[in-house]
């Protein structure tokens, strides 16, 4: 279980999250929606302990362990993977090198190269991604859509038990959204992982059906509903009577 309690966080003295709380049971899919700049991406990064943010209060528990403030790699080793909105590129470092190093750190057992290669190839096929990406430098020269697919390729190999998808639909065309969504749905079905989706658009949620949809405003969740809440937002916008001017739910 993933549990955030009363998290209050700042960036450069500006309060971004204010007593934010969220519970995700194992295997559940939650979506967070909200206006631009409201703190959705911040939340994702704080979970992974991005050093740019300062947490003043609260706790984050994953499977009973307090992970708030732990080194990022330890949080990742607990099984949480963040796929950020704009995955960065790293010159001179290949996807193969990243994954082999990550696997080596995860387990003291030798990597079964045959199994590793097979999993990579299978994931590339599912993602409709050229297998050459395995040996390419991380996201160098890759389009927005390719970057998202490369990150999911990493997920297929590293097998996180919780996926945090920060606007994974941004930069994807209609066909690519379907491919990515199918991959995520299959991964969810196979592993029973939990998923936290941050998105602006209902379209992604048409393909990946969340158990809950939350509206983030004023640094906290102001409304929770099912998939229909996303439909409401899509048709009426955040300025509708779903939330008032102060970010409180009606």
């Amino acid at each position: 279980m993933f549990k955030v309690n009363n998290l209050t966080a700042y960036i450069e003295n500006k309060k971004i999250l204010d007593e934010f709380s969220l519970d995700i049971n194992d295997g559940e899919i939650h979506a967070i929606m909200g206006k631009n700049g409201i703190g959705k991406s911040t939340l994702c990064k704080i979970i992974l302990n991005d050093p740019h943010y300062e947490v003043k209060r609260g706790s984050i528990l994953y499977n009973g362990k307090d992970i708030l403030g732990k080194p990022t790699y330890e949080i990742a080793k607990e099984g949480i993977m963040l796929i950020s909105q704009n995955p960065i590129s790293i010159e001179g470092v290949t996807n193969m090198e990243v994954l082999r190093t990550a696997l080596r750190e995860k387990s003291s057992e030798n990597i079964n190269i045959f199994k590793f290669n097979k999993e990579m190839e299978d994931a590339c096929k599912k993602l409709e991604l050229d297998p050459k990406f395995i040996h390419k430098e991380v996201n160098v020269g890759a389009s927005g859509g390719e970057r998202k697919k490369v990150e999911l390729l990493h997920a297929a190999i590293l097998k996180p038990s919780m996926l945090i998808l920060d606007e994974i639909d941004s930069g994807l065309d209609v066909d690519a959204i379907k491919v990515v969504a199918n991959f995520i749905n299959d991964y969810h079905k196979e592993t029973g992982c939990s998923i936290l989706i941050v998105t602006h658009h209902k379209q992604l949620l048409d393909y990946i059906k969340p158990n809950y949809v939350h509206i983030l405003s004023g640094g906290k969740i102001v409304k929770t509903g099912d998939y229909h809440l996303a439909e409401e937002i899509e048709s009426s916008g955040f300025r509708s009577n779903i939330i008032d001017e102060d970010g409180k739910s009606e």
């Binding site: 992974l48 990022t72 790699y73 993977m81 990243v98 994954l99 190093t101 990493h154």
Partner: peptide, 22 residues
């Protein structure tokens, strides 16, 4: 880049080794 590599479960020490090499 350090943060990105650590989000894959790579320790800071190993991440620096990777970046150093590249």
């Amino acid at each position: 880049e350090l943060f990105y590599l650590q989000t894959k479960g790579i320790s800071k020490e190993e991440a620096i080794k990777i970046l150093k090499k590249s």
